[in-house]
Structures are given as C-alpha cells and as structure tokens.
Simulated assay, not measured.
Amino acid sequence: MRSCGIAVIGLGLMGSSALYALTRRGADVLGFDPLAVGDARGSSHGSCRIYRRFNFESEAYTELSDRAFKGWQALEKASGRTILKPSRVLEAGPPGSRLVAASRAAAARKGAIGGPATGTDANAAFPAFNLPANWDVVVQGSGGILMAEAAIGAFREGAEGRIVAAAAKMRPTPGGIRITTPDQEVMAEQVIVAAGPWISAFIPGLGRYLTVTRQAVGWFAPAKPETVGYGEFPIFIIEGQGGVIYGFPDFEGRGVKAAQHDHGPIVGADKWSPPARDDELETVRATLARFVPGAAGPVVDRDICLYTNTVKADVRADDGNEFIIDRLPGDRRILVASPCSGHGAKFASAIGAMLSDMALDPEIDAPEAFRLDRFSGFADQR
C-alpha cells in the first residue's frame, strides 16, 4: 500500500492551494480529485472571481485579504501566469446601505477612502451606470479580477507528480487515514478535506450545518460596449430591491459577467444542470437594465455555480455563511476546509498556506471564528 504524510481531498482553489503550499515546503503530500481544471462540476470552475481587499461580510477579513494578495503575487512570479488583474470595485446601495457602510468602514480603518461617494458621483465617473443620485457608493482602488482557473492551474503545476486524478474515499483507522480510489489505496497520516459541495460525505454530522445552493450566472452583451471595458469600468456589487447583484467589466470580450449573490434554491451537490434559465437570470437582467444600462443586453452565455453555505451557529454568535477551517474535534488527523459561502475564493492563497501550517504543526489552530465547535454537534467532541 502506498503511503504519504498528508493527503488533500479536493483540488479546487482551496485544496490545490494547500497542496501547492505543502509541496513547496517539502512535505510528503498527495492530492486527490477526479476533475480536471475547468470541469464545470467543480465549485472553483470558471475564469474569474472577485478580489476585494475590504469586505462587507467582516472587517476581520482585511488582514486575510492582504495575506492573500501577497500569495497571489508570489504565485504570479513563480508560475509566470497572470493571476490577479487589478480592477476597481464599486459597491452601491440605497441611502443607509449596510453593505456599503461596512466596506467603507473597513477601508477607512486603513486610510483607503476616496473616489465616488454618491450615485451622482459614480454616474459621472462611470457612464455605464444610472444609479439614483442619493445612493451610497464606495469604490475600492485595490481590488482585482482573480483568474480562478489560471490560479488552480498554477497551483497544480507547482505540485506536479503529486496529483491522483481519481475520486477518493477515506476511512480513519488506528494506523492512519485510509484513502481509497478505484485503482489504489493510500495510507495517510493526516488528511485535508476540501471537497466543496461534497464535503458532507466525508465528515459525518457536518451536513446538518451546510446548505448547497444553485447560483445562476450570465454573460450579457453590453448595450454600450465602450463604457464597460476593462480598466474603464469597475467590478460592481449593487444592493438593490432585487437583492445583491455583482458583475465584472468585459475583460474577456464575451460580455459582462453578472449574477445574483443572494442564495438561490437549495440543491444537491451534483445538481449542476440544467444551464441557468432565463427566469433565474431575470433579477440580474432587470438590475442591469435599471442601474447599469451600459452593461444591459441579451444573455449570450450562462453557467451555474454552487455555493456551500454554513447555517447560523448554535453555540456562539454567528450569523452563518462563515468559513469552516478546523481540525475535526473527534479526530485531529483530519482537517476540514469549507471556506465557501460564495465569498471565499479571493482568500485561497492565504487559506492554503494556513492549512499547510496547521498540517505541519499540530500546535497551530485556525481562528476561533472558523472552528467547528461553534456548532453543537461538534462542541461536545472537542
């Protein structure tokens, strides 16, 4: 039977980042994933994600964002690939918007406030928009377009020879964690489970604290292409009556990518089809037509993304949609990595390094906010 010190199950952005970090540190590590880079069933598939330095979800994320930024820069240098394309990020909402206020407060703490502050200002700076004059606006100058598939490719290339392209199952035994694929068995001393929407199948009892939701994504042929090009038009996040809508400049020549961030219907981990329907994209279409008319137009391409979301914790204060990064309380040889809920991708370089640190040093624990014992089903096991 083959053996290794550390196994990584799931090689999306999080798992491939951890595999890469461990490889660079000389660890005896193997990664397992049946999906090739770009396979539409992977949670990290698709060309891009948003990088925000300042995050409305939590001001505590700023330090993690800064660590991730350094990680993306290092990956670019090591791989020769473009990983993070600089882009401004505009966030807008009605007067008193909590989303805008939270991002503005996080930026203010770093002395990074500047640029349009109202709908009137934003419309003048970026002609594609038609925001109400009295709306609140904040613009981050230090955001970017994270080239997700390029990043996964770079991580995997940096771990060449350590990837098993097969689905894996795991079974803890007294002598180690037995990893089984259709063709072989591997005994690992530790396992990092970063299996995205499939993670509940590996961690008993976790499923009750997670939901998987179907998120429709569309690419829209812009009505005014000259107003939405990369470098001129920002990434945008709009909190309107229809919910929170995000989108990208037309940096690929395939239209403006836009989607609804609010959670879609709950589905199973394998419910990637059918493609996004017109009715699922209607709120996005209507929001663009009302607030970003320069980007509005017919849908020219569509996709489905899955969010893996945590529910509200029942042991200590937690509103849900927070990451899980922790050692399994009942078996510390198993590290659980579910930094998802639709806003984790930007942090992957930092989280991979964090997982690497934890696997190599048993004294290191993840931040308290990410621990499993915030859920009653795991609190008693610690």
Rank of each mutant, 00 (worst) to 15 (best):
T23M: 03
R109A: 13
R156T: 12
A345F: 10
L99M: 14
S17Q: 03
N123S: 05
G38Q: 09
P225Y: 09
G143D: 00
K85W: 12
L146D: 00
D28G: 10
S17V: 06
R290M: 15
P234A: 01
M14Q: 14
V217Q: 07
L206A: 00
T287Y: 11
R98S: 12
E232R: 15
S47F: 13
V212E: 00
G141K: 11
A74G: 10
A166R: 11
G297A: 01
G242C: 08
R41C: 07
G15F: 05
P225C: 08
A313W: 06
I238N: 08
Q215Y: 00
S97M: 06
I334G: 00
D250R: 05
V212I: 14
L30D: 04
T62S: 07
K271S: 15
A168C: 10
M147I: 12
I351K: 05
P132Y: 07
T62K: 14
P234K: 05
R316H: 15
G264Q: 03
G143R: 11
R316W: 15
D326T: 02
P94V: 02
D39H: 13
R24F: 09
A258C: 11
K312L: 12
A359T: 05
D314M: 10
R81I: 01
P132R: 04
V299P: 03
G71Q: 11
P274I: 07
V300H: 10
S97I: 08
G93D: 10
D66N: 14
D28L: 09
T227E: 13
P116C: 05
I6V: 15
E91D: 12
I325N: 02
F236M: 04
K77T: 15
Y51D: 00
G93H: 08
Y230C: 10
T82L: 15
P293H: 13
G242N: 13
A317Y: 15
F291W: 11
D373Y: 02
R178E: 13
G15C: 03
